[in-house]
């Protein structure tokens, strides 16, 4: 479960260090509220939602800060973790870039569906949106990624 939480946080925050902080925070909060566990439907969904909220919170704070510091924070600056280094292929970079540029809800839907294999219902529960919204977001995100990658490929072919 910890890994899933981390991946969602990383997707939103684009920074491995911050993502770990969020997971730690959420797991410790979970522990401190262990008396309530019995009342929750799904521990996993609860944690995923907590990670989402905590990340969005951080992103808002970052935005405020970056306004104050005249855009000092570059949201696109990825921390290069070992995994990142492995991805050498250009298309991967292309997909990643496209994903990073998607609206937040689309990013999260893609992450939960394509990477973690959640059902629509689970995604709706975690994100607190309706089933239709889940599908609309997924539709837009999938097609945006498809478009970005097929475009690159055709321009690459033309270059030759």
């Amino acid at each position: 479960m910890k890994d899933k939480l981390y991946r969602l946080a990383l997707r939103l925050l684009l920074n491995g260090h911050d993502a770990e902080d969020v997971v730690q925070e959420v797991m410790i909060r979970l522990w401190s509220r262990r008396e309530e566990w019995g009342q929750w439907q799904s521990l996993e969904a609860y944690c995923m939602t907590a990670v989402k909220n905590s990340c969005l919170d951080r992103l808002r704070k970052r935005q405020l800060r970056s306004v104050g510091e005249d855009g000092a924070w570059d949201v696109n600056s990825h921390d290069k973790d070992p995994h990142e280094k492995m991805i050498a292929k250009e298309t991967y970079m292309q997909i990643r870039k496209c994903m990073d540029e998607l609206p937040q809800h689309q990013q999260m839907v893609i992450q939960l569906r394509e990477v973690e294999g959640f059902s629509y219902n689970e995604i709706a529960e975690v994100l607190g949106i309706s089933l239709d919204q889940v599908k609309v977001n997924l539709f837009r995100a999938r097609n945006a990624i498809k478009k970005s990658i097929t475009q690159t490929e055709s321009s690459w072919k033309e270059d030759r």
Partner: peptide, 10 residues
């Protein structure tokens, strides 16, 4: 038990 939760419990 908590350790299991952390590592994916599954």
């Amino acid at each position: 038990v908590l350790g299991l939760l952390l590592v994916g419990a599954v």
